[in-house]
Amino acid sequence: MLGTLRSLRLTPAMIAGCYFVLSSGWILFSDRLIGTLIDDPARLAWIQTAKGWFFVAVSALLLYVLVSRSQRELERSNDRLDAVVQQTSVLHRVLRHNLRNTCNVIRGTTERLRSDTDTDTDVDDATLLSIVAEETDSLVELSEKTSRLRTLVLDERDHTTVLDLVPVVEASVERLRETTSNVEFRTDLPAHAPVEVHPRFELVVEELLENSLEHNTHEELRVEISVRTVDGSTVFEVSDNGSGLPEIEQDVLEMDVERPMVHSQGLGLWLVRTIVAASGGDFRMVDNDPRGTVARVSVSVP
C-alpha cells in the first residue's frame, strides 16, 4: 500500500482536489469546535485570527510538499526521456552504419559468386559462401542485441535486485568452455559475491566474456576472470591477451556518446554501459599489460 502511494503520480487536478478537501474539512470542523467551546466574542475573534494564520501556514507547507514532489517526478521523467533520446540516436546510427557495411559485404560476395569473370582463383565458392553466412549471422546477432537494448531503454522501472555474482560468472564461463576451443579460461572467484544490480546484469557478464574473444587474434588465447571486493564495492574484471580494444570503440567509450562520424562496431559495449549505469555502477575499459584489454565493472554491495 505504501509503495502504491509513493508511486502515485500527482496531477494538478489531484493537488487542487487534495487542497480543497483538506481546507474545507478544516474550516468546517474548526469553526464548529471553536463555536461550541468559546462564548466570549473577543476571545473568539482572536482564536479565529490565529486559526486563520495557522491554516495559511499549513496549507502553504502542504502545497510546497505536493508541488516539490511533482517537480521531482517531472525531473526524473525528463532524465529518462533524455536517456531514451540518446540511446535511440545511438541505435539509429549504429544500426544504419553496421547494416550498410554488412549488406555491402554480402552484396559484393554474392556478386563474385554470380560473376563468371572472377579471376581470383585463391578464393573458392565455399569460402565466399562462408563469408555470406558469417555476415548473415552477424545481422541476426545485431538484431538480438538491438532488441535487448531497446527493451532496457524503454523500461521505466527504477529498481535493482540482489544476486550472487559468482554462479552467474561460473555459468557463463562454463558455456564458453563448451562452445570454444584453444582458449584458456582462468578464474579467481570467492565463494559468494552478492551485488545489488539491474535484473538483467547477467547480460553484462556474457557480453564482456564474448567481447574478450571477439577481437582476440593471439595464437594462445587467454581470458582471466576475477571477482573481488574493493572499498566496499564488488569489482568484476575480464582480462584478455588480445590485440586490444579497437580505437573506434575506445573513442565511443571515452566520449560517452556516439557522434555522427564515430560508430562502434556493435551494440555489446553499449548494452553493458546501459545495464551498469542502471545498476548505479561504473564501467571502464583499460589496456592490459603487456597486451590486451581489461574490462572492469564496479557495483554496489547490498
Rank of each mutant, 00 (worst) to 15 (best):
R259G: 07
V67Y: 12
L271R: 00
V230K: 00
L99Q: 05
R69V: 08
R43Y: 13
V230L: 11
L129S: 02
V223N: 07
L61S: 11
V140I: 06
R9A: 06
P246D: 06
D118K: 03
V297R: 00
I38D: 03
S23D: 06
K145D: 13
Y64N: 13
E206G: 00
K145M: 13
R9M: 03
R157Q: 14
E134H: 05
E258C: 14
H159I: 03
R9W: 01
L2Q: 09
I225T: 15
Q48A: 13
T117N: 10
S243Y: 01
L10H: 05
P260F: 04
D31I: 10
H263T: 14
G244A: 05
I27A: 13
D118P: 04
A277N: 10
I131Y: 02
S59F: 10
T121A: 14
V223I: 15
D188N: 11
R273D: 12
T217K: 06
R107G: 02
H159C: 03
F283R: 00
E206F: 01
E135R: 14
G268P: 04
L209H: 00
L221T: 15
V272M: 07
P246M: 08
D158A: 09
E135K: 12
E220W: 10
G280I: 12
E214C: 05
V105A: 08
L165Q: 00
G232L: 07
G25Y: 03
E207M: 11
S77T: 14
S77M: 09
S59E: 11
L267E: 02
S30W: 08
T102M: 08
Y19K: 01
S212D: 05
A57R: 07
V183N: 08
S243H: 03
R107N: 10
L66I: 13
H192M: 00
A133W: 02
A295V: 06
T49F: 10
D240V: 09
R9F: 02
R222K: 10
I27P: 01
S7L: 06
E73L: 13
N211E: 11
L208N: 06
D31Q: 11
